[in-house]
Amino acid sequence: MKQRVSLFLVAMLAFASAALAAADLEINTPAIAALQSAMQTRHNKLAAYYASGAVGLTRDGNVALHDASSIPLAERQSVNGLVADENRDRAALYREIARANAHPEWAAEVRTTFAQRWIDKAASGWWVQNPSGAWVKK
């Protein structure tokens, strides 16, 4: 009897550890790949504005105008457009990742995770929001 119980426990432990070693999140879907490539292309235009401080990274996983006065008047409208497009794609990306993993309700947590990682990976000199929402230069 004892042997059977311990066998049962061993089987349970093996099962539990297999379940704990959860697989990576699914990010290889056509929708996510399309968003990624659109954002990568847009980054070529946005990078200069991150560096100049015109645009910064927000604490909620978006980008926002930080110093509009540093943008030449003629470019302001196009920068506004870039920011709006980027935020639209980011929202879609967070939503798609949650959906690809069969948990649409995870979108907000995916956004929180990304917000932190965008800021962690930002180059020095870029402006980012700290947890209380104040702008700080990295």
Binding site: D24, L25, Q40, W106, Q116, R117
Partner: peptide, 30 residues
């Protein structure tokens, strides 16, 4: 929510969008 896996996924995507080499810290070379 699998926070650690999400972080790994975020890193992969950010590295691609910002064209970072995996493991490199800054988004643009100094």
């Amino acid at each position: 929510f699998p926070a650690a896996e999400a972080e790994k996924a975020a890193d992969k995507i950010i590295d691609q969008v910002w064209q970072l080499k995996p493991g490199a810290k800054p988004a643009t070379p100094p």
